[in-house]
Nucleic acid binder design. Structure first.
Length: 1049
RNA sequence: GGGCGUUUAGCUCAGCGGCUAGAGCAUCUGGUUUACACCCAGAGGGUCGGGGGUUCGAAACCCUCAACGCCCACCA
């Protein structure tokens, strides 16, 4: 059996992905075993996966592969998210750049069609990336948040919530992109400080209170509110003014109040009075609000524009009587509410307003200042806060005090039904839910689940008399009747719209019902009506409705992406159908996700799970660390500092990527990953510098060949001129080397299997070195199991690495080399194979490709293997049982004895190195030690001989230090290497002196401690005893060293 | 402004009240005898961010300052 000298990741990946898939190992279906379920956090279909995804998904795969080996029926449910805003934005941008058409020109239907095409392409790409990572997802069950199965769950949930009164309609200020004429989410905006103005104006107070006038003004002066006497208002004598400042003068047109702090003495007498906005000649009240106004800032008085400012909007909610006025058209021009300013573009309107106020003598000055300006990430134009109708989900408790959605979800974490790892993340979750803020679920987009609500409105018959207007009950009855006749009454909930007259909302549950409602809508359409005089026969109830001026239209908006994502753990399993899968796999076991969506996603999944199924969606939530770039900043598209996992896989292999990423997943820490660009001309690794990070820096000059290239990343941009670098990071070499190490250990073994015959061995009959490796193996397997149970991925990786490299390869295999040539051969082979078998299993969850490659080779050579009992192997390591060994194998005493031997070997090696001895030179070693230690050393002599290049070893209590020898002293033995004629006595003397000094220094400290009565009294007894022992040892060592030093002189 | 986190070797990170502070990478020294140069053996390198405190004992616990990162609010 001969393996190549180096592990070839690409070949293994190609071979075993299909192997696993063809044998159906990834597929899970309900059976009698206990399930272990993970649902993937569905990646957005917007583009490619990045390192964060690689981290997240590797950890999930580790868990799933491990639990599968443990005997669980493991299901990892894959899928992707339609990601409303992000995806629509990407496709719109693409269409615009290619065809110069906006979505309005393309039309809703066509745009959605185009996005589906995009989705198909990128979904395939993303799933392909996951596959190359080795993700053992059940691909047959792949879901998409917009597919029919998920859509049904969305409909059902919305319908239920609507019926329960949890979904309601309200107003909300959104970020309005006037260029694209759409609202954008907060995370689709960015803020930049720009040069702006800070204008101060005044409004005339009206009416002038009788008996007050100049006197009042005098008070103002006294309070210092007016630096100079206000100019007289044109056309009036002795008017009082109230001053305020703003960065957006044009919003003045939509002011509905002026607000002061309730305890601001300067303005007490004005509260309750009114002022006039001169430009639109509107009278608005002066109100007091402690939250809105900070009396120490500016004039202590603010104008209130509820429809165009979030804070003012909040203020309006507290003082609804002031009303709110929208002054903007969707395109950013002033609407009819702006009077004579109607039609002006917003910034033009600003200039005009300022000029007009100045002409009226009401302008007091402008200050230039830096102001933060919110921009739309997509159009790069300034955002306008814009008032619009939205749908909300009520999060608060019910009127009767029963726990509402937020409360329910909080309780699930408080009582431990859902646990967070690390625990502290429960705080983010609880804090956010505690606010119980209603959730705005409507989005002004076309890509997503359309809101299944239709709005029926009606007016008067043509004659126009009042009595002809139907009241809502009449229409409700009429509709109810019609629904019953059409057989969809259970699938449509109707209710009259609050705060609106002559409007009824129909919430539709099923596709069938939706078709019926759509039919009714077309009958009600005046245009359709004219076309088809026979409508009355088709729709018996229709005529009653269509006697009115009537329209029935579906809400044009779609649902927030998270509305479908929150159903993911149960929608993917077929809910609302009572499928076998839902029964078996739900609730799922573990959720692995990143901390920035604890609120957006995790909390809402708990809410949805409890609301729909009365059960939490998952038991454990593991929050992954974040990968940062080499400068400690999050990787992001904007910064251009991301890394493409595929390039890492190409260069180092999937196993290397996986190992590294698992090793990074420590408890608390985010991890930095310094990245280099591989120069496309000369292959030199060029570390990324800070100035390369922004996409604005398009060009880097290679320090090696002096040629320019463009830094690489997961989001490459097309550039014909400049070659784009691939990315690499030295970090991944560790994983690559580790895979190669395991490969070569196996290779060594397979080269030495001649004559192998399987046979069960009794551990206690084996020699010490075998018992040692078995003890270490058993301890390692237990440790890794425990570490994985606690989600301590990084520790598990390290435990595995240390055992395989530093114990198995460095010591056991080295010791086995000699034995393979001797009588002992048969047993060594059995132990070697048995241990390697265990190692491969332990390796598999983290590095499945190299594990499977070796498993297959091992199967060919030794299909029957095992140590305490011989069993046939499995056809794949994926389905092999997770290792667990007899507790009796664990033997601390044996591990201690081996450690002593290792110490001796290292001591001798150190001496050899210090004197640069030729490897061929054998040395003579003298060890003074107790008889039991001596007998161990004698037993292990062959190993000491070969591992440390020792020719002759003398040990025992009476062994004397050689005349020309140097060595080291441990608590249990003194070892000397005879180096007649080689020792530089002076240097050696100095070295020993230094050693003595160091030991004395420590001894002094330790003695001082023991002299301290407080220490002896208060420290635990074993700590004191330990220190006493240490002191005794040290004294002996120092004595011995001093004796040597004396002898040398 | 509120919350969370981080600061330990040149770099990336462990250590979370008690063994003279550890690992990997990098550096230096020596080594190609058939598992592996993606290797082997060895060495050097740290007043644990600063300052206080608690304790017999602090890298670890508390307070404070500083720097950095993240989340959430807010900026007329």
């Amino acid at each position: 059996m001969e393996l190549p000298k180096q592990y070839d990741p690409a070949e293994a990946q190609k071979k075993y992905l299909d192997f696993w898939n063809d044998r159906g190992y990834f597929h899970s279906k309900p059976d009698g075993r206990e399930p272990y379920t993970i649902v993937i956090p569905p990646p957005n279909v917007t583009g490619a996966l990045h390192m964060g995804h690689a981290l997240n998904n590797t950890l999930q795969d580790v868990l799933v592969r491990w639990r599968r080996m443990q005997g669980f029926n493991a299901l990892w449910m894959p899928g992707t998210d339609h990601a409303g805003i992000a995806t629509q934005a990407v496709v719109e941008r693409l269409i615009f750049s290619q065809e110069k058409k906006t979505r309005h020109e393309i039309g809703r239907e066509e745009l959605v069609k185009r996005i589906w095409e995009w989705k198909d392409k990128y979904e395939a790409r993303i799933l392909g990336q996951l596959r190359s990572l080795g993700a053992s997802c059940d691909w047959q069950r792949t879901r998409f948040t917009l597919d029919p199965i998920c859509a049904r769950a969305v409909r059902e949930t919305f319908f239920k919530m609507f019926k329960d009164g949890l979904i309601f309609r309200g107003k909300r200020l959104v970020n309005w992109d006037t260029h694209l004429q759409t609202s954008v989410a907060d995370d689709e905006t960015y803020t930049e400080d720009i040069k702006g103005g800070f204008w101060t104006f005044k409004y005339p107070v009206s009416p002038l209170p009788p008996g007050e006038g100049l006197g009042v003004r005098g008070e103002y002066h006294a309070a210092g509110a007016f630096p100079s006497p206000p100019a007289p208002l044109p056309g009036g004598e002795g008017r009082e003014f109230i001053r305020f400042s703003t960065t957006r003068p044009e919003t003045m047109l939509g002011d509905t109040a002026v607000c002061v702090h309730p305890s601001d003495e300067r303005y007490q007498h004005l509260i309750g009075k009114t002022v006039t906005i001169p430009l639109v000649n509107r009278e608005i009240p002066i109100i007091a609000d402690a939250l809105l106004v900070d009396p120490t800032l500016g004039t202590g008085c603010v104008k209130v524009t509820p429809a165009h400012d979030p804070n003012d909007y909040a203020c309006w909610q507290r003082h609804p009587h002031i009303g709110l006025i929208n002054i903007l058209n969707p395109d950013g021009t002033i609407n009819e509410a702006g009077g004579k300013y109607q039609g002006l573009e917003r910034y033009k309107a600003r200039e005009t307003v300022v000029a007009d106020m100045e002409a009226l003598g009401l302008f007091e000055g402008k200050e230039d200042r830096e102001i933060p300006m919110k921009y739309s990430d997509r159009s790069k134009t300034p955002i306008e806060p814009y008032l619009s109708d939205q749908w909300f989900v009520k999060m608060g408790d019910h009127a009767d005090g029963k726990a509402g959605l937020a409360r329910m979800a909080m309780e699930a974490v408080e009582d431990g039904r859902v646990k967070f790892f690390p625990e502290r993340y429960a705080n983010s979750y609880l804090d956010w839910l505690a606010e119980k803020r209603d959730w705005c679920i409507s989005r002004q987009l076309w890509w997503g689940h359309r809101i299944p609500v239709w709005r029926l409105t009606w007016g008067v018959k043509s004659s126009g008399s009042n009595e002809d207007i139907w009241d809502e009950n009449e229409v409700l009855n009429c509709l109810t009747e019609w629904l019953a006749e059409t057989g969809v009454k259970d699938d449509v909930t109707i209710r009259s719209e609050p705060n609106a007259s002559h409007a009824i909302l129909l919430c539709v549950r099923t596709h069938d019902a939706e078709l019926r409602v759509a039919q009714l809508a077309s009958v009600l359409d005046p245009y359709e009506r004219e076309k088809d005089e026979a409508y009355g026969k088709l729709y018996p109830t229709g005529p009653h409705l269509v006697q009115m001026i009537c329209s029935l239209e579906q809400d044009p908006n779609v649902l927030d992406t998270w509305f479908s994502s929150m159903l993911w753990p149960h929608s993917t399993l077929g809910w609302p159908e009572a499928t076998a899968e839902l029964k078996y796999y739900y609730p799922t076991s573990t959720l692995v996700t990143s901390r920035d969506i604890i609120t957006l996603w995790v909390a809402r999944m708990v809410i949805a799970g409890l609301y729909n199924l009365n059960q939490v969606p998952f038991k454990d939530v593991y929050i992954t660390p974040k990968l940062l770039d080499g400068f400690g900043e999050t990787m992001s598209k904007m910064k251009g500092n991301g890394v493409d996992p595929l390039e890492i896989i190409d260069r180092y292999g999937a196993d290397a990527l996986r190992f590294q990423v698992v090793q990074l997943a420590g408890e608390t820490q985010d991890s930095r990953m310094p990245v280099s660009n591989v120069c496309p001309h000369c292959e030199v690794l060029v570390p990324i510098k800070q100035e390369h990070m922004s996409l604005r820096t398009r060009k880097v000059t290679c320090p090696g060949c002096k040629q320019p290239f463009r830094p690489g990343g997961p989001w490459p941009m097309d550039d014909a001129e400049l070659k784009t670098a691939k990315q690499a990071s030295e970090r991944f070499e560790v994983g690559r080397n580790f895979a190669n190490k395991i490969w070569n250990a196996a290779r060594f073994l397979l080269m030495n299997l001649e004559g192998y015959k399987p046979q069960a061995l009794k551990a206690e009959t084996l020699p010490i070195e075998d018992r040692w490796i078995l003890s270490r193996l058993a301890n390692t397997a237990s440790a890794i199991t425990q570490q994985l149970e606690g989600f301590h991925f990084s520790e598990a990786a390290r435990t595995l690495y240390d055992f395989v490299w530093s114990e198995f390869c460095d010591w056991y295999v080295e010791m086995a080399k000699g034995r393979l040539k001797g009588d002992d051969k048969a047993n060594v082979q059995r132990v070697l194979i048995g241990v390697l078998d265990g190692i491969i299993r332990l390796v598999h969850p983290i590095m499945p490709f190299v594990a499977e490659s070796i498993w297959q080779a091992l199967n060919e050579a030794a299909f029957e293997r095992g140590i305490d009992r011989v069993v046939e192997s499995t056809e794949s390591v994926m389905i092999a049982p997770w290792p667990s060994y007899p507790p009796t194998w664990k033997d601390a005493a044996i591990e201690g004895r081996m450690a002593r031997m290792q110490e001796l070997v290292r001591g001798v090696r150190e001496v050899r190195n210090r004197y640069s001895l030729d490897p061929k030179v054998s040395v003579h070693v003298f060890v003074r030690c107790k008889p039991d230690v001596a007998s161990d050393f004698q037993m292990l002599t062959p190993f000491i001989t070969s591992l440390a290049g020792v020719g002759e070893l003398q040990c025992g209590p009476d062994v004397q230090k050689p005349a020309q020898g140097t060595g080291h002293v441990t608590p249990e033995f003194e070892a000397y290497v005879s180096l007649a004629g080689l020792i530089d006595m002076a240097a050696e003397g100095k070295r020993i002196e230094k050693q003595i000094a160091e030991k004395k220094k420590f001894l002094q400290g330790a003695k001082a401690k023991l002299d301290n009565p407080n220490f002896v009294a208060k420290a635990p007894a074993e700590v004191v005893a330990q220190l006493r022992e240490q002191v005794a040892d040290l004294e002996k060592q120092i004595a011995s060293l001093e004796a040597n030093l004396g002898a040398m002189k």
